[in-house]
Write a protein that binds this DNA or RNA. Sequence first.
DNA 1: CCAAAAGTGTTGGCTGTACACCCATGT
DNA 2: ACATGGGTGTACAGCCAACACTTTTGG
Lengths: 218, 218
Amino acid sequence: MSAPRTESGAGRLVAVLVVIFRVEAGRLQVLLIRRSAEPFKDSWSLPGGRLPPGSSLLEAAVHRLEVETGVSEVFLEQLYTFSDLDKGDSVAAAYWALVDRESARLARRNEWQPQWYDVDRLPALAFQNETVVQLALARLRNKLAYSNVAYSLLPPEFTLSQLQQAYEAILSHVLDKRNFRKRILALGIVEPTGRYSSEGRHRPAQMYRFRERRPVVF
Amino acid sequence: MSAPRTESGAGRLVAVLVVIFRVEAGRLQVLLIRRSAEPFKDSWSLPGGRLPPGSSLLEAAVHRLEVETGVSEVFLEQLYTFSDLDKGDSVAAAYWALVDRESARLARRNEWQPQWYDVDRLPALAFQNETVVQLALARLRNKLAYSNVAYSLLPPEFTLSQLQQAYEAILSHVLDKRNFRKRILALGIVEPTGRYSSEGRHRPAQMYRFRERRPVVF
DNA sequence: CCAAAAGTGTTGGCTGTACACCCATGT
DNA sequence: ACATGGGTGTACAGCCAACACTTTTGG
């Protein structure tokens, strides 16, 4: 049957995890927390928690993201649901999100000590959270090519060079400037705002914004 | 936290659904069953059931597929996990699979009356199973282009015309014969067996097999 | 005038698409 | 002989990758 039978017996423990990425100083980073409970107490893991009764998976993921970073209107998508991350009998629905380093601010006062880590220099993680991160990273790299996911990685206005730097950080290889601009402009995911970045000791740069601040796939 | 706390209180009900496709007589079909329990008793739905204690999601999906069709070595992949298919507090992990009409044989004696339905002529479904089917269909169409998913839709040996017919049934539009053959051969997902189909009142056709009988993505 | 980043075009290869005819077989 | 499906090639267009110099500004 496609749904629960009304019957007795405890169900499964359902957890929700969120892989939260940002780009900082040309590095792709993931948000990790220190576990405050057993098992794996004090080791690093992805933020997450038990799915509260009455809450949908998405609501729980949004809430967790908001608790950790303070942001909510960002790209957030289901990644995969795992049932064998630990030896217990639990099911973990993983989500992934992209946040802008300026608007995402970690709650410093948290009992778990949230920290950003470069994806290519992760510490040892609880359960098999490295698997989850790797899967999220693969999805991210994949979606970069044919969607506007990056919209929530950058501030509302940005230069094409900044966008390119974000792409390079994610893909971890350099891109040709002219081809990058051609491709992005041809995709039509951004448009010029008419304003110019003045923050250089250099030539001012045209600023752009994403046409859509929600997921669009091509 | 990324996993269960050891604590009291019942968890969630976790269900596993499977969207099983086949191609029959040029039509793409989905397997449906009649619900034998409330709610939605006697209406059609996707095969599924509660995730048994101690079982992983994949094991449960494999098992369900095997119960319904008798096959197990086929393409089977996680689709999406829903938490709002019904008004209850359950979570449903959906999988999708492709089976060959020759080897998949429905268990006739089931209390639920499994039946194949054309995807474009579904009856009213319980919960929001139409959503699930539509999502699975989108994934299937998408994956056709850059993977060998079709490997479990056809018998071990088949002609390129049969393969093309399967593609056309899934995409629901006709394909150019020469371009199709060029593309499939260039992808390298199939190879000639050297044998010839003799089942025509027509010219015998070269038979092919898939190089890999497990998912390969390009 | 120097350093630093912005901005800009062309070419060649590859890939995908459109399109029509002949062949082998069975009846 | 005819009906049925099997099998094949070419030409054009769009896309992607490689590649280097000039401009603007601040110091």
